[in-house]
Write a protein that binds this DNA or RNA. Structure first.
Length: 596
RNA sequence: GGUCUCAUAGCUCAAUUGGAUAGAGCAACUGCCUUCUAAGCAGUAGGUUUCAGGUUCGAGUCCUGAUGGGAUCACCA
């Protein structure tokens, strides 16, 4: 039983004993004591005054005294207003640390026999990945790690948008202006090459429109009837009918993109168990439309289009099938939802998709509920906010995007610069040094994007945002490297730092107490992160832990400590801190270096 | 215009889901490397939580309204 659980039991007992009251199971909640007061756990008595029929201070004191006299878990308590602050004894904390050291599975909970599918990334194959995709990918990967540690079996999937009018745009531009250019011939990464033609299409299309506007044609008509857009539509039709030439070009160009994406994904450190392609799923969902029609959940308009009416739930009518019988986005998503369930029989299915699609997913999930899909209860849209630049929104066509490959490269270079200035890794080989820059640069970037609550939009300032000091990835990595250095020394001395009963008599210093408290909160933190699908919970936790350890490190000596028992405790304590940091950073998809 | 969403220190973000005197980092200022990595530590300063009401022992958090951002409302994806 954990320390917190024991305290809750004692408080329940106290209510029984003193107030003849049996609190509901699990209704007693503790919170962490605020820094300015002594103690680790706080019980708020205000909600129970009607039961105790006493003043807040008195109620708190009675419960505090009960805890002290009926167990050895706490060493003292203090009461401020109605707040009962409980100070856990050093021996209790040390026993807890000993338990953690002996636990082989520390940081990873038992399997809960639940399956969850996490869909993330979901790029279009007409342009390279940018900053917005980085947030998506890091989020998706981190949430997967968190759920896995929480006990789920996690299946990471990527639904690639590899077909459609926008893909045809870059294909058409390439056909017209490409002159047979290839990634090899120009030494350009495949996805960037395709992106170049996507932009080119837009430029040429705009030229045509300007000309048409000059000829007195209305804007709407120009947009619809410009020769290039018509050609793109024509090409889409050909693709759908399986025209060999178009399909060949499509294959060639998409493969270039995939080769480029592979490089980017590898550098980002993300991966997938399965890749769905829309070219293979876009026809799905039509049978579901038929099903819905048959069950009179949907209806057909005179022109042949199919709709669902959600107005009784405060939403609108939504188109599910065009009048020409072709499917729209949501049709595919209905089909893909079934497909995923058939493939994996998941308990939960998470979609990591930006909050601009909140309405879409709201509609999608409601339709699936109406269709009585039994898996509908497990659907979750992990809706994350956009990443803004100081100049405002990113727009691919206006060239105001921050490219993912460029950004990762810059981060690594910044790491190299900072490392060179400090001059701490002179003994590294070139290869080791490069690996370190990668770990630090990516660590800074991932931490920066993950430390913010996913739901909130965030600002990314390329010049100022990414630092290596303060609340950053490298700060935490640095703490790990420091401890690693200590552990190397301990190893050189041949020190065995396995904790034993001998270590339980030690009187903890304030900083040590704080750190152990944080380490002991790891599992609870993990649950909270999993429940909310929120890596930011982990990020804040690990920052707090690193900060607190650094305080300890500045105040007390580890390897220089004279008393051998204390020394063993501090080394073990440091090692467990390092382990916890590594585990937590692992949940964020961030590596930690032994030396930096 | 309808719906959804956000607004906290100069800047970027927290606040244990209704609890104590609203906290960190950056930027500014002051100290600390002859001792385990100074990518660090300690300290100073910075707030009418956008505004106006309400709910209650207690509100940054819940409700109503206002103001200001953002998203969405396509036979686009």
């Amino acid at each position: 039983m954990g320390i917190e659980e024991q305290l809750c039991c004692l408080i329940e007992e106290a209510f029984n004993h003193h107030f003849q009251y049996q609190p509901e199971k699990g209704s007693i909640a503790l919170q962490a004591t605020r820094k300015e007061f002594e103690g680790e756990f706080t019980f708020v008595t205000f909600p129970y005054l009607k039961i105790s029929k006493k003043k807040p201070e008195e109620t708190a004191t009675i419960i505090g005294q009960y805890i002290i006299s009926n167990s050895k878990i706490a060493e003292s308590f203090n009461v401020v207003k109605g707040f009962l602050n409980i100070k856990i004894s050093s021996a209790t904390w040390l026993q807890r640390l000993l338990d953690i050291q002996q636990n082989q599975h520390y940081g990873r909970k038992a399997k809960n026999n639940q399956k969850v599918v996490v869909e993330y990334s979901s790029p279009n194959t007409n342009k390279p990945l940018h900053l917005g995709h980085l947030r998506n990918n890091f989020l998706g990967y981190s949430v997967s790690c968190i759920l896995e540690a929480e006990g789920y079996e996690v299946i990471k999937v990527n639904l690639v948008n590899d077909r459609g009018i926008h893909i045809c745009k870059s294909m058409l531009a390439y056909q017209k202006f490409g002159n047979g250019e290839t990634p090899e011939s120009s030494d350009i990464k495949g996805d960037h090459l395709i992106g170049k033609y996507y932009v080119r299409f837009d430029q040429e299309y705009k030229k045509e429109m300007e000309k048409m506007l000059g000829d007195g044609i209305k804007k709407e008509d120009a947009e619809k009837n410009a020769p290039l857009i018509q050609a793109a539509r024509e090409m889409l039709k050909k693709w759908e009918s399986g025209d060999q030439e178009v399909v060949d070009l499509w294959n060639t160009m998409n493969n270039w993109v995939y080769e480029g994406f592979d490089v980017t994904y590898k550098r980002m450190g993300v991966e997938f168990d399965h890749i769905y392609k829309e070219s293979e799923t876009y026809l799905l969902g039509k049978t579901i439309v038929d099903e819905g029609l048959k069950r009179e959940l949907f209806y057909r308009k005179p022109d042949g289009s199919v709709w669902v009416d959600l107005s009784d739930e405060g939403l609108d009518e939504k188109l599910l099938l065009r009048s020409d019988g072709t499917s729209v986005y949501i049709t595919q998503d209905l089909g893909t939802a079934d497909l995923k369930y058939n493939d994996y029989q998941f308990d939960k299915s998470v979609y990591v998709v930006g909050n601009e699609q909140d309405y879409h997913f709201e509609v999608l999930f409601r339709i699936l509920k109406r269709l009585k899909r039994n898996y509908a209860v497990g659907l979750y849209h992990l809706s994350y906010g956009m990443v803004d630049l100081p100049s405002g929104k990113m727009k691919s066509r206006e060239g105001t995007v921050v490219d993912a490959d460029d950004l990762m490269q810059e981060m690594a270079e910044t790491a190299q610069k900072s490392t060179a200035e400090l001059g701490k890794i002179e003994d590294f080989t070139d290869e080791q040094a490069r690996a370190l820059y990668e770990i630090l640069g990516l660590g800074a970037l991932k931490y920066f994007l993950l430390k913010v609550d996913p739901k909130k939009r965030m600002l990314f300032n390329p010049e100022e945002s990414i630092q290596f000091h303060g609340n950053t990835g490298p700060f935490i990595q640095y703490t790990f490297a420091r401890i690693s250095s200590l552990l190397r020394k301990a190893q050189q001395e041949g020190l065995n730092y396995t904790l034993s009963e001998k270590n339980l008599n030690y009187e903890l210093h304030e900083t040590e107490r704080e750190v152990i408290f944080l380490i002991s909160q790891y599992e609870q933190m993990l649950s909270e992160a999993a429940e909310n699908f929120s890596p930011s919970v982990v990020a804040q936790y690990v920052f707090e832990l690193a900060k607190e350890y650094n305080r300890f490190y500045a105040e007390l000596s580890v390897m220089g400590e004279k008393d051998p028992v204390t020394k063993i405790f501090r080394v073990a304590f440091s090692a467990l801190t390092a382990k916890t940091i590594k585990n937590a950073m692992g949940l964020l998809g961030i590596e930690v270096p032994e030396k930096m």
